[in-house]
Design a protein around this nucleic acid. Structure first.
Lengths: 361, 361
DNA sequence: TTGAAAGCGATACCAT
DNA sequence: ATGGTATCGCTTTCAA
């Protein structure tokens, strides 16, 4: 009921001191005699005073918050992302505002709206137009996550193309597969664009004819099921599908096994991300692990540094790891013990590239 | 680069008018001559002036934002929730701040922090302690979504217990199943608490012995897989498992079919929520549909009303619908046409209770 | 050590 | 129709 918040002035009056002193006490700045401090503190406790955020922010000309912008948030990928990001933000007592654009039409306007409520912005690649990124970068610190921004905007990413190429080579060279298809929409996000590029590159490197056009679907499980339907309608069924991420791969797996196909005997399936479910399905999913959490944490660190005025890095590139399991046709690893979550990656190929950080001169 | 934002004062000087006039023009309030308006507008355009959010908010003593708090955000349930909520918020030009507590230890403190940056708070049931809800309700408008708050705090919810009871009765009475198990942690959230209660109630109503203790796992797919492992280790295998939500049910499905069991012949599985994947797996999942999006939209409307001072409702109860598909043992519906997303629910039981809204006298 | 007062950026009342 | 100015709640010089 006591919705009538008190102000510094009232606390000052109550404690018999000036507002300056109250401010000093509540912020722990400046010199205050022990006795006065106690008196002020008592008044604060007694009336449950809490400095009003807006007043404080206006005076300090900073919000104490950063924004995190991405398209949607279904699935473990985003969950992981947010946790990594927040874990760093809390360290500097900065709160995180999340904005999911859901690919709405006017999402750019929303992002700009948000830009006025935060001290910095982390944007997932492909979420907002390059022009808008540029506009944002002119008004506040911006870091792009999993994508590339315009010149001058730092980006944190993994080498998707190299990882996808390594994965594809594994299928083409080690398993001798031909007729592979790519499931995912290269226009959907920079991540997918690059993975599609790596997929084609592997064909090119092995002097094989280029693959056919991708099956353009989204990144969620139902999208994978729809992709499976398309695959099953083909006159000549592909030998394998390389999916843009694990969730769509799980959808494909569900879709094709539901129609009676055996994986990997009739169809090989691979994913990307190494989400927890990847190791738990039958057969377990061959995929590429990327350190999403660490990626997000780096992004937060970088953003906070830029916002604080210190920061020289212009970008970071993280390593990925090929995780070979059963869905590509490799012999199944022994079943994990029921209790543990040992998923025995048996990685063949590790570190497509080491973590490299480019630094401005 | 022009990070040096202009203020009203500068624009006023530039346009040769007073700050009051600039404010009038930029807000469209008050009377301004056409000529002056044009002059001011030109200055605004020319210098890309945008009123500073903090100044504005401090003067208006409102943030123009509401908060949405919940535990995590993996999966379509939360995605749907957020979209429903935001769809209402945008109508009043209110921005939405999302906070996922990830069940962190100090999450209550974070929520209180957020409370100072918004005009109202929607909290998912079970996310923060009742004491904290009470504390929050004393400082700003609060609405609880999918759960119940302390007296005086409006809540928006569905009758989980009735829906779960109806679903369970279907298995016990229509299918004649015995030995059912519940998968989910009743302590995890009010939703699960109520579903577990409904599950037991159905046993009681049919004068059957009470079910055994629930298999306490989380609400995500991997949790379902772990539950499946537990089910498979039982000396006497249950005939069916009633899962707290669809995602864990999908995990159970993956887990048991991976071990060679047939669903529904060897084991019946049901979910709750009716997420898109529920209709796409084999067999399709029997579940309970709840209007998550509409629920969230109602919550937003209610919150905005309370925040605006107008609002008499103390809570809303939404209807659910039992969606009978194949995983309970009912004859499979015809396969949906590959193109459409017609999933032919064939609901047997509809509207466990009509939408009721309680109103304060 | 403490207090008075000048901002921070915008709004809105009250004159004119 | 326009301008001067108090105000929102807090921080932070600058004096005392």
């Amino acid at each position: 009921m006591s919705s009538s918040r008190l102000t510094v002035r009232e606390i000052a009056r109550l404690a018999g001191v000036s507002v300056a002193t109250v401010s000093r006490v509540s912020n722990g700045t400046g010199q205050v005699s022990e006795e006065t401090r106690r008196r002020v503190l008592r008044a604060i406790e007694e009336h449950g005073y809490r400095p009003h955020h807006l007043g404080r922010a206006l005076a300090a000309r900073r919000h104490g918050a950063v924004g995190l912008v991405f398209p949607g948030l279904s699935g473990p990928y985003f969950s992981e992302l947010i946790q990594g990001f927040e874990s760093e933000a809390v360290k500097t007592r900065t709160s995180v505002h999340i904005l999911c654009t859901h690919l709405r039409a006017d999402s750019d306007a929303e992002v700009i709206e948000m830009a006025q409520r935060v001290d910095g912005l982390a944007v997932l690649g492909g979420t907002v137009s390059p022009d808008t990124i540029e506009e944002l970068a002119a008004m506040l610190p911006v870091v792009v996550l999993a994508g590339d921004g315009p010149a001058g905007v730092p980006a944190v990413r993994v080498d998707n193309a190299a990882a996808a190429a390594a994965l594809t080579r594994h299928l083409l060279a080690d398993h001798g597969l031909r007729r592979l298809e790519f499931v995912g929409d290269p226009n959907g996000s920079p991540d997918v664009t690059e993975r599609w590029a790596g997929f084609r590159q592997a064909h090119h490197d092995l002097e094989l004819p280029p693959p056919r056009a991708p099956i353009r679907v989204g990144l969620q499980q139902p999208d994978g099921v729809h992709a499976a339907e398309q695959v099953l309608r083909r006159a000549i069924r592909p030998q394998g599908v390389v999916c843009a991420n694990d969730e769509s791969a799980l959808g494909v797996l569900v879709g094709v096994t539901g129609r009676g196909l055996r994986v990997p005997e009739d169809l090989v399936i691979t994913g990307f991300d190494d989400i927890p479910m990847a190791a738990l399905v039958t057969p377990p999913l061959t995929t590429v692990r990327q350190p999403v959490r660490e990626l997000a944490a780096q992004t937060a660190r970088l953003l906070l540094q830029v916002a604080a005025g210190s920061a020289e890095q212009t970008g970071l590139l993280h390593a990925t790891e090929l995780v070979v399991r059963g869905s590509c046709g490799c012999p199944r690893s022994p079943e994990p013990t029921p209790t543990g979550r040992r998923h025995t990656p048996r990685s063949r190929h590790s570190g497509t590239n080491q973590a490299a950080s480019t630094t401005t001169p």
